[in-house]
Design a protein around this nucleic acid. Sequence first.
DNA 1: GTTGTACGTCGTACGGTGTACGATAGCCGT
DNA 2: ACGGCTATCGTACACCGTACGACGTACAAC
Lengths: 233, 233
Amino acid sequence: MDRRRGPTARAPLSRERVLRSAVALAARDGIESLTMRKLADELGAGAMSLYHHVPNKEELLDGMVDIVFGEIELPPTDVDWKTAMRRRAISTREVLNRHRWAVGVMESRATPGPASFRVHDAVLGCLREGGFSIELTIQAYSVLDAYIYGFALQEKSVPFDDAEGGAAVAEEQARQFAEDAARQQSATLAEEFPHLAEVVAGHVAKVGYDFAAAFEYGLDLILDALERRRDAT
Amino acid sequence: MDRRRGPTARAPLSRERVLRSAVALAARDGIESLTMRKLADELGAGAMSLYHHVPNKEELLDGMVDIVFGEIELPPTDVDWKTAMRRRAISTREVLNRHRWAVGVMESRATPGPASFRVHDAVLGCLREGGFSIELTIQAYSVLDAYIYGFALQEKSVPFDDAEGGAAVAEEQARQFAEDAARQQSATLAEEFPHLAEVVAGHVAKVGYDFAAAFEYGLDLILDALERRRDAT
DNA sequence: GTTGTACGTCGTACGGTGTACGATAGCCGT
DNA sequence: ACGGCTATCGTACACCGTACGACGTACAAC
């Protein structure tokens, strides 16, 4: 059969096309249903054809992660370090939120790609030019990235997106837990975990929880603290 | 055959025993080789027997995570909030480091167990009694946990444990990357990513990288910043 | 002591996974 | 025209989670 011409023609496979299709498939159906066979179907190809453009599934995931890194906005160079880092942090959260699977697969993946190197380098450069010593730059980088990825990790394991949904889910979860507690002889939620109950029932369920706002609050807290460390001594 | 007496006797299965064996197996052989069959072998039982004590593998993982949470030291109540949170944060990092797989499986797992509730409640209580408002307590909890888990996540994806190993690996990685760059027409690492090169070659490779120290530096930075926020207004 | 029943155990089997291997078919330099 | 090269893909294998049903045994009722 002719693979290049005619109405049944198909664009030729390539590493780029394979990776982009994989990202799209993961976005649409979730990472756990990203299968070599499904991915090949998506591309109108046989499963084994993929292995001519990607050595194995591990490296496929590596490549996907690097595509995600490529979507992160580099810290702008025409503003002060603080707003540059702020922009880049917010962009990173947005990207990790758009590709929720990415946080999960980044862990256990030790070989970063070029896009990853690019943002690491830009961030370090931004801090150095902002007047941070090498030691402080390393620390700042460590704290910021830990916070960003950790926040994305928490956010990922929560089944809602907006503040109102947060309130609803919190209420539901509290109700269900109280039910569980009632089923056995144990005390109710409010009795056994009073502080948790106070927070959930007394605040989150009332005003909801805005992830974006919470993220920026913590981010500014860290940025301010870093600035103080930089100006000390 | 007699399963209860004689030299071939074997302790009866139970949810507790299954979970503990699973944690041990994951610690020994890595989480990716934790298989229902292997776990059953480990317990001297058939694979399907496990399903009478655990509904499926997902809930097996949930149970394992809760065992890990149970190892986290609760914030002590006889010291001020700051040292209590410090102790608990360091303990959490140690536990997540002892069970590297835990960070990876926590994500995507949305139903927390009793041990998890216990530490959440204790942390919230510690902050509330430390004089934080409900809103600030939620923020503090969010920032701290994001930092702790994010740090553990970064640490996990690094193949060494101590500072000297860090220096060695950094050097090796830099060398390998330079080699990759040389193989194509592209510039060398130092030319393309100057800030990265500066940090890796100029500092990490020289003095090494001490994860524990870095963690505590960032932790104190955050704790100090939280204290300032609490005392403001 | 007998028997009915419920439960813990496990052999087998099914559908799904990643991927090794070898056959095939089109392209290009000669 | 033709021989190598490379991309494609059908088939097969080992391994995974787990549904199903047979089997042995503990225990309560009689």
